[in-house]
Amino acid sequence: MSFWELIASMLGQGLVITLLTTVLAAVLALVLGFVAGLMRLSKNKFIRFLVAIYVEVFRGTSLLVQLFWIYFVLPMFGITMTAMTAAVLAIGLNFGAYTSEVVRSGIQSVDKGQIEATIALNFTRVQRMRRIIIPQAFIIMLPNLGNQLIELFKSTSLVALITLTDLTYQANVLNATTLQTTQIFTALLVIYFVIAWPMTKGMKLLERKMTEGRM
């Protein structure tokens, strides 16, 4: 096969899975990250403790180990799932733990005077969070969230190791059938780069747009 045919073949088979895994896992990570990050700031010690365990376990062990554990060990306890579900769950849980730290430190770095202003204007705690703190914290978090999205996208290549047919998996299959090793893995690197690079640029642009004139 020619170089372009190889690329076309990989894209045709694996691109959708790679992108779908990225999007689903990113949404899960963002939701988990916000929920866990806010819970970590709770007044309730027990809630803080529970979240700390989640965060430390998923940050302290390796993503690939988590992926294998969810895919190979959970079925032993009667919990079976498709490779896709396992992939989204593992990546989402893993990045959710990191995101929660981003969320927590983002919220904590909002100027304390903002809290005083909302007390003086008689906001409730929920109103304060929703209207004043989170919108400002989000802008502070954006660069970190952007970096995490790129890292998450790159990490989806691991799902090939639990037989999910993403770009990397397809490359391995092609490699086994055509033996055009050099072209295949070069093409694979280029494909990832061509997706990740605009993502990096896009996040930077979004960042600039959101801070324009305001901060």
Binding site: T181, L189, Y192
Partner: peptide, 22 residues
């Protein structure tokens, strides 16, 4: 640097392990 940063480590490992011998 940008290229390495924007591609997955796993694929880089494959590249070094399978392509270099070529």
């Amino acid at each position: 640097v940008k290229f390495i940063r924007n591609t997955p480590l796993l694929v880089q490992l494959y590249f070094i392990f399978y392509v270099f011998p070529q």
